[in-house]
Structures are given as C-alpha cells and as structure tokens.
C-alpha cells in the first residue's frame, strides 16, 4: 500500500515534465514530421500532402545535400578523432600525479564553458586566410617565427576548407574528452598496473594492453557525445565563415532553406533526417549502456 502511494506521488511529481516534454518535444517532432510530408512553400502553412517527395529530392536529386553529407562526414571524422587523441593524451599527462593538477584540469576544461559562437568569432580572427601584405592571425604568427610552410588559407581552402572548422571544435571539446578519460583512468585500480609491472611489462605495454582496453567504454561514450554534437554543428560554422556553400552542413541548409527561402517542407525534411541520423548513432548505445547497467 505504502509503496503504491509513493509510486503514485512520484508519478504526479514528474507528470508536469512528462506533459511539457510530450508537447514541446514529441508534439513538435510530430508536427515537423507532418510538415516534412507537405508542399509548404511560402509564409502561410500549407499542409497539402506531398508524400516522401521532400525526402527523395534531398537524397537523390540535390547536389547541395550531397555537399552537406560529405562535409559532415569529413568534419565528424576529424573532430571525433582529434578530440579523442588529444583528450586521451592530456588525461594521461594529468594522471601522472603532477603538481598543480587541479589548475591544469580547469585550464583544459574551460574552453567547454564557452559557446561555439564565441569560439567561432575568435577563431575567425585567428584563421584569417589573408596573405601577403594583409596577413594576420595565425598566418602572421607563422610568418614572424619563420614557419612559412604552415601559412595556409584555412577554411577558404578549396574542397577541404571544412577540415579547418574542426580545429576550433577540437580546441573546445578536447578538454571535455580529457575529463571523461581522466575519470576512466582514475577508476582503474592500481593493483592492475602493479600486477602488470610484476609480470615485467613496460609502461608503454601497460597502457597498450591494460589501460586502453579498460578505457573502451569511456571511448565509446565520448564518441557518441562528440558524434552527435558534430552531426548538429551549426553555430560554429556560421560564426567562423558565415553562410557559404563550400562549408554547408545539413543544419545550415535547414536554416537557410526554411527561413531565407521559405521552403518549410524541405527544411522540415532535413530536420527529420538529422534527427534520424542522431538516433541511429545514439539508440544502440543507450540500449547497450542501460542493459549493462541493469546487469550490474
């Protein structure tokens, strides 16, 4: 009886959030889904049924969307790999028990507290592609210290400009990845390292064969978190480079086609495809974690 009443009370406590989420998240997802199946172009809503036309046009008949997919793949691979490698490296350094660890930990984590817009504006200055007499930013630094070979066009580079956008993104999120790895490293009992040392393993071998395999769940979590950030990247690109097709990604296409071009149906279809791509990434992961947690 008591338990039943507690359960009821608990349910009532979360009911407001359930209702709010039901309307403002799932209700709007449903509405977006409906709009994506319509011919809505223009200011006023038009729910005329269009079937999957918006989706088939995007996927099979839209060169811009192909550019978006290509850019997203390049950005995601570089951003996730960059964060994982740099994050692990920083975490291993901090794990050596050096003095002032707390200071460095905060230092590496701070970029995460900044919004992508701020990061973008600063890196827009740093990655100024101007050369010759108007050289500035990092290129000017390279010029002054004699590293001329490093001077480049950054995000204005033809074809591969999107790779430059990964640099500020890595700068911002690698501290967070470090925190994840540091937590993982601290959770590994010293006994295991001791045992490996007793067995004659070198420090490198310990990391290679003991630590890294134990960090695999952390790596997976980090990949999922970073991956869904990178699929949705929008603000960083806008702040660094503005609206330009060479650096287009689905979120920017969604924004411009909906609000600049008034193609509401097409914009909604891009939104649904984005949601789907994030869901494909995250659902198996959540399923796996919750199942393993249930087993514990």
């Amino acid at each position: 009886m008591r338990i039943k009443r507690d359960a009821l009370l608990g349910f009532l406590m979360v009911l407001p959030s359930i209702i709010a989420i039901g309307i403002f998240v799932y209700g709007f997802i449903g509405w977006t889904g409906r709009v994506s199946l319509s011919n809505w172009v223009g200011l006023l809503p038009n729910y005329e049924w269009a079937g999957l036309k918006n989706y088939t046009n995007l996927l099979f008949n839209d060169p811009r969307f192909m550019v978006d997919i290509r850019n997203t793949v390049i950005f995601t691979v570089l951003f996730v790999l960059g964060c994982l490698i740099l994050g692990l490296f920083l975490a291993v350094l901090l794990d050596q028990g050096l003095r002032g660890e707390a200071f460095f930990r905060s230092l590496f984590l701070f970029p995460m507290a900044i919004s992508f817009i701020v990061t973008g504006v600063v890196w827009r200055w740093l990655m100024n592609p101007a050369q010759g007499s108007r050289i500035s930013g990092l290129n000017l630094l390279f010029d002054r210290i004699g590293l001329d070979s490093l001077i480049n066009s950054w995000h204005a580079t033809p074809t591969w400009g999107i790779a430059a956008i990964a640099i500020p993104a890595i700068w911002q999120m690698s501290g967070y990845t470090m925190a994840l790895y540091l937590g993982g490293l601290r959770a590994i009992p010293d006994d295991l390292r001791e045992a490996a040392r007793v067995d004659g393993a070198s420090e490198v071998e310990i990391y290679r064969h003991v630590i890294l395999p134990l960090l695999r769940p952390v790596t997976l979590s980090a990949m999922i978190i970073l991956g869904h950030i990178s699929l949705k990247v929008f603000d960083l690109i806008i702040a660094v480079a503005g609206k330009q097709l060479a650096l287009d990604v689905p979120a920017i296409y969604m924004w411009t086609t909906t609000f600049d071009g008034q193609f509401y149906g097409r914009g909604a279809a891009i939104a649904m495809l984005l949601l789907l791509s994030v869901a494909i990434l995250v659902i198996p992961y959540l399923y796996y974690t919750i199942r393993t947690e249930a087993e514990l």
Binding site: F28, A251, W255, G267, I283
Partner: peptide, 24 residues
C-alpha cells in the same frame, strides 16, 4: 525498455535539434 530508450534518445537528440528549428 526499447520504447523507453527511444523516448530518452529523442529527448536528447531534439534538444540540440531545436536550437536550429525553433529557437527563432
């Protein structure tokens, strides 16, 4: 469990999604 997961995922995913679609 799967249904619950789907709900959780959609919540997480849509939080980010909304920044672009409905923030305006």
């Amino acid at each position: 469990l799967m249904v619950l997961l789907l709900l959780v995922v959609l919540t997480v995913a849509s939080c980010g999604n909304r920044t672009a679609t409905t923030e305006t």
